[in-house]
Structures are given as structure tokens and as C-alpha cells.
Computed example of a mutant assay.
Amino acid sequence: MEQDPLSKLRDIHIPEPGGFWPPAPGWWVLLLVIIALVFALALWARRRRQKNAWYRIANRDLDRLANRAAVTAKWFSELNGLLKQSAMARYPNRHPEALSGAEWIDFLLETSPKDRIASRPTVTAMVQSCYQATPDCSPDDAIRFARLWMGGKKC
């Protein structure tokens, strides 16, 4: 009989390293957070795209109007109609569809992003050109103002 109890001890065995699968609970939580963030970002982007659909449509229509610019009352009426549609989408609580004449001019200038004073003659001529046999507004100036007004602030 051996009296040495240490002789019965075995060497220390290091446990096998953990496998790749299944991950620790912290990784599952991180995965769920990432999935939630991606979902929220996709939802936000979709809502923003839907909210700004009027902007894409209005710019497309404005390009069409610019390509067939003419110094006619009908063309200026179409341009003002496009601006009114955009104003109704952009400022629905202010009821721009009911405005005409000086009120419509003031509304366009008030909601214009910049150069309000410099734009007044152009906007006045543009709105009045809808009712004149021979409009005195340049279509280029009117298109330039419309682009400035529509590009000022998206929802």
C-alpha cells in the first residue's frame, strides 16, 4: 500500500473549447436588436418615400413643362396648376387650392425658401400670365422659380 496520496492524483485536464454553435445568449440579443433596427429603418425609409412621392411626380411634370415651354396663357395655367397641386401636398392645412390672384402670389412668396423680394416680379408676372392673351413673363424665369420653390423643402 502506498502511503502517498499525491500519487493518486491525475494531471489537470483542460476542458475542450466551446463550439461555434450555439452562440451565447448575448449574441442572440444582439441579433434581435440588429433585426429590429433594420426593420425600423426600412419602415422609416418607406414612409418617407411615400410622403415625398408628390415631390418626384411634381419634378417629373415640371421637366415635361420645361421641355415644351411656350409663352401662352395655357402653358402658364398648367404651371400654376402644378404649383397648386404641389402646394396642396406640401401644405394641406393651409388650403392653397382656394387661393388666387394676390393671395396666391403672397402664398408662393411666403413659402419660397429664399429670394422672396427678388422673386416677386417673376411670381406676379407668372400668375398674371394665366389671364393674359400675350403673357409678359419669361417661361425660363417661371420654371426657375418653380424649381426653387419646389426644391426648397421636402416633407
Rank of each mutant, 00 (worst) to 15 (best):
H13Y: 05
H13Q: 13
L43M: 11
G152N: 02
L30V: 10
R60F: 06
A45P: 00
K74E: 15
I35A: 15
S77C: 08
Q132K: 14
E2T: 15
R48I: 06
A146M: 10
M1W: 04
L99D: 08
C155W: 10
A66S: 14
V71C: 06
E16W: 10
K74H: 14
V29H: 00
D4W: 03
A70Y: 07
I105W: 05
R46C: 05
K153P: 00
P17Y: 01
S119W: 13
A24H: 12
I35R: 03
F76V: 05
Y91F: 15
V71M: 13
M1T: 14
F39I: 10
A45E: 08
P96D: 05
A73V: 01
P113W: 00
P17D: 02
A42Q: 07
E16I: 06
V127D: 04
Q132N: 05
L109H: 03
L31R: 13
S7H: 06
D106E: 12
A102D: 13
P96F: 01
P5F: 05
K51Q: 15
T72Y: 06
W28Y: 13
L79S: 01
R68N: 11
I57K: 09
I34H: 01
V127E: 11
E110H: 09
A146N: 05
Y131Q: 09
F107W: 00
R90T: 04
R90M: 09
F145L: 04
Q85R: 15
G151C: 09
H95S: 14
K153N: 14
F145Y: 15
W27K: 06
H13T: 12
